[in-house]
């Protein structure tokens, strides 16, 4: 093994170390596993009066367990409500009369969507709408209501 080969081996290790670092950052630090697994799922949407601080990529949970993510949030221009597209794993089937509410994790935590499964036999399919929704709790509005009631 001559010097030339040693140099090439060192460079090879250097490049490998760089790639390994990228992989480590991707999977261990940014938790890319969701995308990597890219589990099959379906999309449903729900209309909310007010979504508070909900963002795309927020969690969707049933009984506190992650079952999907918020895909996108838009304003429905016909009735001025927020249209939230939810991506839900195929392994989770949800009855058509389920409800969706926007909750906050902890006092100052992120907003997420909690689904409450209904009792219907039929399940939601791709593109269906969740009828029953509860908006996010807006602290200012709550305080306003409280003050107003006190006056009466």
């Amino acid at each position: 093994m001559n010097a030339r080969q040693l140099i090439e081996i060192a460079v090879g290790f250097f490049v490998l170390a760089g790639i390994a670092s990228l992989v480590m950052l991707a999977f261990k630090v940014s938790g890319l596993r969701d995308v990597y697994n890219s589990e099959q799922g379906y999309q449903v949407y729900a209309l909310f009066d007010n979504i508070g601080n909900l963002k795309a990529r927020s969690r969707v949970t049933i009984a506190g367990v992650n079952v999907g993510r918020v895909k996108s949030i838009e304003l429905d221009e016909t009735n001025y409500r927020a249209r939230v597209d939810l991506f839900i794993k195929n392994s989770v089937q949800i009855p058509t009369d389920s409800g969706a509410s926007i909750l906050t994790a902890g006092l100052i935590g992120d907003n997420y969507i909690a689904l409450e499964p209904g009792a219907e036999e039929k399940m939601l399919k791709e593109g269906d709408v969740i009828q029953e929704t509860h908006s996010a709790l807006i602290l200012e509005r709550l305080i306003g209501q409280f003050l107003f009631n006190e006056k009466k």
């Binding site: 250097f14 490049v15 170390a17 760089g18 790639i19 390994a20 670092s21 990228l22 480590m24 950052l25 261990k28 630090v29």
Partner: peptide, 15 residues
């Protein structure tokens, strides 16, 4: 070519 690789290694090691 080297600097991006070095920066990635730096971040990974620092974590």
């Amino acid at each position: 070519y080297s600097l991006p690789l070095l920066s990635l290694i730096f971040s990974a090691v620092a974590v």
